Simulated scan of single mutants.
Amino acid sequence: MEEIFKQLEKPLNKKSVVHLALQFVEKGITIREIIDLTFLPNKEQGFRAAWILEQIAFNNQELFLPDFSYFCSRFPEVENESCKRHFAKIMEQYSHYLRNSSAVNKNLMDSICSINYEPVIETLFDWLINPKTKTAVIAFSMTALCNFHSLYPWIREELFQQIHFLMKNGSPGIQSRGKYLLKKIA
């Protein structure tokens, strides 16, 4: 594990993140261990671990999905602003599978559907209303919440109001994403 900490101390680029993600998988480092690494006290190391986690989540679903419920259980604990981006992006993608079950095999879909997402949803709304939240985190959070509204109908009205509020003074990215999502939930 000490070798992993050393690798997470160095600045990374996209190519090295992909390489490290493969190395982590080959060395048998579990998804739970990688999730736990995102909570390291050293925020830079936590950010790099979250970036690696995102790569695995997007490129190796079969490896990530068995620990998706653990990922969800840790989701509300994320405080590292840089990690929020990766956690929100992963949640955006995996919440999409709830709306598009053909994208995932049946066994994995069953495991996704059996999770209580209320704590995740609450966290996503908290990130939306926090004025210090970065634009990318807001955009990913809005989309994830939109994806959840089919399972949790109460989300629709609250999200509708939040998107309108965020669009008033939002960046061009928030404006664009907001318009797109408002059409989806209307």
Rank of each mutant, 00 (worst) to 15 (best):
G170P: 09
Q23V: 07
A103N: 10
L124F: 01
V137Y: 02
R177G: 09
W154E: 02
T38W: 14
P41T: 13
Q162I: 09
P153F: 09
V137I: 15
A50H: 14
L8I: 07
G46S: 05
D36A: 04
R99W: 00
V78R: 03
H164V: 00
I115H: 08
R177T: 09
T30V: 06
F87V: 02
M142Y: 11
V78D: 02
S141Y: 01
S114H: 10
S16A: 15
H96G: 10
G28V: 08
G173R: 00
P66G: 12
K6A: 01
F39C: 11
L181A: 11
E9I: 00
F160M: 05
L12C: 09
W154T: 05
H149N: 10
F87E: 04
Y152N: 04
I174P: 07
V104W: 10
V78H: 02
I31D: 04
A57G: 03
N147E: 05
P11L: 04
G170F: 01
P66S: 13
L182I: 03
A21R: 10
C146G: 10
P66T: 07
E54H: 14
A186S: 11
E81F: 03
E157L: 02
F148W: 01
L40H: 15
M91Q: 05
V25R: 08
R85V: 11
R48D: 09
K89V: 01
R85F: 15
V78S: 08
P76F: 08
S73W: 08
G46T: 04
K14Y: 15
C113Y: 13
A50R: 03
A136R: 03
D36E: 14
F24I: 10
K106Y: 05
M91L: 15
C113D: 11
W154M: 02
M109T: 13
F71Q: 12
F87H: 01
N13V: 10
P76G: 12
S141V: 12
S73M: 12
E122A: 05
V120G: 06
I90T: 03
H164E: 12
A21Y: 09
G46E: 06
H149I: 00
Y180E: 07
A144C: 14
E157K: 02
Q162G: 00
F39S: 07
F5Y: 15
Q23C: 04
C113L: 15
L53P: 00
C83D: 12
K84V: 11
M167Y: 02
L63S: 04
F125Y: 06
C72R: 09
K6W: 08
P76M: 14
E3V: 06
M1Y: 04
L145E: 05
Q161H: 11
Q61S: 14
L40C: 08
N107F: 13
W127I: 11
L12Y: 07
F71I: 02
V120P: 10
H164S: 01
L128W: 04
I112C: 05
S176G: 00
P131F: 13
A186F: 01
N60W: 12
F140S: 11
D36T: 03
F58Q: 07
L53W: 06
S111R: 13
K132C: 06
A57V: 15
K15I: 11
N147W: 02
L37R: 00
E79F: 09
Y117A: 14
I115E: 06
L37T: 06
P119N: 03
P119D: 01
G46F: 04
L22K: 15
T133H: 12
E62K: 08
Q61W: 13
